[in-house]
Each structure stands twice: as C-alpha cells, then as structure tokens.
C-alpha cells in the first residue's frame, strides 16, 4: 500500500500548495461606477470584471419589467422597477466568479437570467485548473507505477 501511494506524495503536496497558497493583490484598488441594465432575460453588461479590493458602485435599472439583482457570495439582493434606478455599493473583497441573478419572477426564463461578476485574480478557477493538471499527471504516474493495482 505504502509503495503504491508513495509516488503520489509529491502530487498531494503540490495540490495543497495550489489549493492554499496565498496570492498577493497585484492591482491598486479603485472605485468603479457601472450601470447595469436588466431586461428579459439578461443583464447588460453580462459580465463585470473588477479587481479584488475595488469599490463597486452599480446603478441598476430595468428596461422592461421589474427585475432583481441577487449577487451570490455577497448576499446582496435588490429590486428595481422600470423607470427607477437602484444604487448598489460594495467592496469586491472576495475573488472568483459570482453570478448575479434576477430575484423577481420576470417571465419564463427568469430562473436562467444570470450575469457574472469576476473578481480578479480569479484564484478559484486558476487553482481548479492547476489541480486538474496535477490530477491528470498524478493519475498517469500512478497507472505507470501500479498497472496491476489499477486493474483490480
């Protein structure tokens, strides 16, 4: 058993490093004013890209019917009616991709009315890709060293 697992130890150590290593903030935080228009069944712009630490000020408006803006990971939930605007302000202190979704039933495709906030550096994605590469390499090393065990 020990012999079988031994070749995987470097991969496991590397996996821990990839999963947990802290990454410094590269860009200076700034304040971003963004207007987001909600209409059946999309947001414009569909993707918001910001940097960690940025102060985000969103002016939310609805183009057709009442819409909502629920931001995963930040617990923000606002609603806006056509002709009105809603100001949403927060600091993008969590990195990764966070979906914002309509939280007011607005028509048939309402559950799929989704936009994306990407807070760079997108460490979740980068770490996942790194772990994927390690997983593939580790599996092949294991198969090379333990061909018989893999067949059991």
């Amino acid at each position: 058993m020990k012999r079988r697992v031994a070749p995987l130890i470097p991969f496991l150590v590397l996996a821990l490093v990839i999963a947990l290593a802290p990454v410094p903030v590269m860009a200076e935080p700034t304040t971003r004013h963004i207007t987001v228009t909600a209409s059946q069944f999309a947001y414009n712009p569909p993707v918001l890209r910001v940097n960690r630490g940025d102060r985000i000020i969103i002016t939310l408006q609805a183009a057709d019917v009442m819409h909502g803006f629920y931001l995963d990971g930040y617990g923000i939930n606002e609603q806006v009616e056509p002709g009105q605007t809603r100001r949403i302000e927060f600091v993008a202190d969590r990195t990764g991709k966070f979906r914002y979704r309509c939280s007011v039933s607005c028509g048939p495709l309402h559950p799929f009315m989704i936009g994306e906030l990407v807070v760079e550096p997108n460490l979740t994605f980068a770490r996942a890709v790194g772990l994927m590469g390690l997983a593939v390499a580790g599996t092949f090393v294991y198969l090379r060293k333990n061909p018989a065990a893999a067949l059991k």
């Binding site: 209409s39 069944f41 999309a42 947001y43 993707v47 495709l109 799929f112 989704i114 936009g115």
Partner: peptide, 14 residues
C-alpha cells in the same frame, strides 16, 4: 446556454 450570461443565446433557444 442556461447558466451562462449570454442573453442572446437564451433568446435564440427560447
């Protein structure tokens, strides 16, 4: 199509 942010694809599929 369903989970992406691209409204035009949803419109076409819809």
């Amino acid at each position: 199509v369903l989970l992406g942010p691209w409204g035009w694809v949803k419109d076409w599929a819809n």
